[in-house]
Amino acid sequence: MVDTSVTLSGWRLDNPVIPASGTFGYGYEFAELYDINCLGSLSIKGTTLSPRFGNPTPRIAECPSGMLNAVGLQNPGAEKVKTEELPRLAKCFSKKVVANVSGFSLDDYTEVCRALDGEEQVGIFEVNVSCPNVHGGGMAFGTDPASAAAVTRAVKAVTTKPVYIKLSPNVTDIVAIARACEEAGADGLSMINTLLGMRIDPRTRRPVLANRTGGYSGPAVFPVAVRMVYQVYEAVNIPIIGMGGVTSARDVIEMMLAGATAVEVGAANLVDPFACRDIVAELPAVMKEYGIEKLSEITGGAH
């Protein structure tokens, strides 16, 4: 019998498979299809302090081996997530979740984390630093080591839960940002967020997305994600949740060999609602094929 369990900052997961934030809602749509307790955990829709409608539509565009999205962090706000979404999720999911949080100022981040800090259901915080800093000229927190470190320190000061910083790949040197987060006290890293992209409709001669640009995800970005996880693993000593274009158990193993402790699955859920269930189900057989008995031992195995 193979062992698929992994541990993130002392939190033991039955397996490393976690649906990524924004691709799984709060789990209910999928719970209608299968028992989502087979998952390692799930990362909830990105939560901000105030409710957000998000960007105008179209928000979605087809791409080679992937898609663009510019949803714009639509969510009901931290209070409703705490009083409505998490209790509703608890009825169909008995495990702890990854609480994905976003903000547009340091205060936003700390207020959201404070609001959710007392929730037993939250295993770790996953802090999305790809949002623009409204007090910093609109540049994303995650594109500058000092800003990413400032978010890390601010969040660490208000919670006792492990804090994972979700890194943006839209940077010159992701290793420098990862190091800055580690030095600022991050318990782990989550990577990668989507790659900034754009499509133009030749008939209208206008961008397909109302927001003009959007985040590229799907199998196309998998090699970029593997490369970045590999580079960051060499530079830091904190665990990494790897993601970006993962669609199969083989991809999960490849991401772990690059340096990931756990793996999130994103865009695949949108085209195949059973993707995560199937990945979890096929993991033991694929582990056997590669001679892996204990999955947690392969993290960073390619180095």
């Binding site: 809602g25 749509e29 409608f53 928000r59 979605i60 898609m67 999205n69 397909v208 859920n269 609602p273």
Partner: peptide, 17 residues
């Protein structure tokens, strides 16, 4: 009609007010 991501309510790609 709207451009959709998933088509089953998970991605918030086709929201309207």
């Amino acid at each position: 009609e709207e451009r959709m991501g998933c088509g089953f309510g998970a991605c918030m790609g086709c929201s309207c007010k």
